[in-house]
Amino acid sequence: MNSNGEEGKVESQMTAKKKSTEKALSRKIEVAERRLPSASEAVGEPVFGLEGVGVSYGGKVAVRDVSMTIGAKEITALIGPSGCGKSTLLRCLNRMNDLVPSAEVFGKCLYHGTDLYGPEVDPVEVRKLIGMVFQKPNPFPKSIYDNIAFGPKVLGLPDVEERVERALRSAALWDEVKDRLDDNAYGMSGGQQQRLCIARCIAVDPDVILMDEPCSALDPISSGKIEDLMLELKEDFSIVIVTHNMQQAARVSDKTAFLIVELDSTEENRWGQLVEYDETEKIFTNPADSRTEDYVTGKVG
């Protein structure tokens, strides 16, 4: 009886949360009543639940059958050899794949219990909650200030100026740029540009930040700064990072998913597949799958 009652309570809490997420993702939502679904969430509570997710481009499968749960306020790393579909998988999580006309997503991609590809869901609303940092720094050809202010302005968020400063401080960039906010962002170094892109992303208060190999175009010192930044940001945001750098995954992430390129018997079709997903420490010290071990120890890949 007792346990049943508690279960019922938890269940009703969960449905309430799912409702609010559904509302946040559906069209015509007022910005003022926007709630970040995992703002109050404890570390490790599920943010994404992938159930048999696959993506194909023009009928050709790029990644198939990925099932995993991504936790709140953690850094989840996706690693694997090139072509294993880790970036493709990442782009599923904020519907960036929609921008490729021939892309098709299969399976269930649950975000706080709501299917991101459900009929009620507006991709624009999804991207307001789930931000993204790209492989190559892509600042807008505008001033540093306008780069950060763009997001809050188009989303109609209040206190733009304050947000810009807060975002730049969170991205550990404020002291470097506070005297030249009106300068063009293209005058910054690559590492600064990437931190600007991170600041731009957090200026709109997302729930999740997706990072697609954010350090691959940067030198080691700039990469180190971004890694430090990620560790600070995970206090407030859930982060999913794709990286080709295993050491980076080992340094920053809490959980690691290892993907691999599979070939069919004819060796004509290749696709990405999830091999193992676990605590980062376990993946790097005591992986369950021998293919993971071969990859993380550098025998293949």
Binding site: M96, G131, F140, F150, V154, R200
Partner: peptide
Amino acid sequence: SIRDGSLALGATQWQTIRRQ
């Protein structure tokens, strides 16, 4: 990449075209 950056912030396609 400029369009991607804008869309990833939750801007609509028209906002992206108009402002970027």
